[in-house]
Amino acid sequence: MKVGFFITCLVDLMRPRIGLAAIRLIESAGFEVEVPMAQTCCGQPAYNSGDRATAQALARKLLDEFERYDYVVMPSGSCGGMVRTHYHELLADDPELSYRYARLQPKVYELTQFLVEVAGVTDVPGRYDGEVTYHDSCAGLRELGIKQQPRALLQHTGAKLKEMAQCEQCCGFGGTFSVKYGDISAAIADEKCEHIAASGTGAVVLGDLGCMLHLEGRLRRRGDTTTRVIHIAEILAGEA
């Protein structure tokens, strides 16, 4: 079966190796992967900022590019939540787009959700000899129910998971929130950094690059140059 891979803006521009790791995982699970080269954004930044027209245009573009695939997979609960949860309301005024979206929506998955719930993965290429803690990104957790899937997959790498305090608490990024409310965002990130440090693992794993960049940047600004911040795709693919 054929998977359309939505790489996401941040991964494409900032950490393309995460996308390559995710593709490797999907292919190792026995699926053919295609990456539509004209893809851009899921529309979430525009949607969250009240620019409905731009968000709708981007949603239509995504439909045009991905509706032909058996599955659509993205290495981000944030983008996955936007497409799988918010497109319904965003496209509600257009009967044609609503119909097309209703057919696409059940095929959209965040990476770990796809590997566990669709592919039934019981082994992964990566091995990790050490302790890690896990940060639950807000959108993946609350909009898609991403909680046990990454933890189940981490077990296959040999990593020892130590849960941090308040692992479900926001990291403070929140997309445009971190731009509009920088001081609040930094304070929330500081609290999360303290929980990561208290876990004693030296490594935090997570599934959204926005959260990853935010926490990594805050850790470094606080003088922590050693704690590793790893995307789940990288550790599962053996590229951490």
Rank of each mutant, 00 (worst) to 15 (best):
V3H: 09
T8D: 05
C9Q: 03
R17K: 14
A21D: 11
I26Y: 05
A29Q: 04
F31R: 13
V35I: 15
A46M: 08
A53F: 09
A59F: 07
K61S: 11
L63C: 04
V73C: 11
M74T: 15
P75R: 05
M82D: 08
V83M: 10
D93G: 01
P95F: 08
Y99R: 15
A102S: 11
R103I: 11
Y109K: 02
Y109W: 06
T112E: 10
F114T: 07
V116N: 13
G120V: 13
V121E: 11
Y128F: 15
Y128T: 12
G130E: 10
T133Q: 00
D136Q: 09
C138S: 05
C138F: 04
G140D: 10
I146Q: 00
R151F: 12
L154D: 05
G158I: 11
L161I: 15
L161A: 13
K162I: 14
A165P: 06
C167H: 07
C171E: 02
G172N: 02
K180E: 10
D183C: 04
I184Q: 03
A189I: 02
D190S: 03
D190V: 08
E194N: 11
A198T: 02
A198F: 02
S199P: 13
G200P: 04
G202N: 14
A203G: 13
A203C: 14
V204E: 05
V205N: 10
G207D: 13
G207T: 15
D208T: 06
L213E: 00
H214D: 01
R218S: 04
L219P: 14
L219H: 08
R221L: 05
R222N: 04
G223E: 00
G223N: 06
I230C: 07
A233F: 00
E234R: 10
G238C: 11
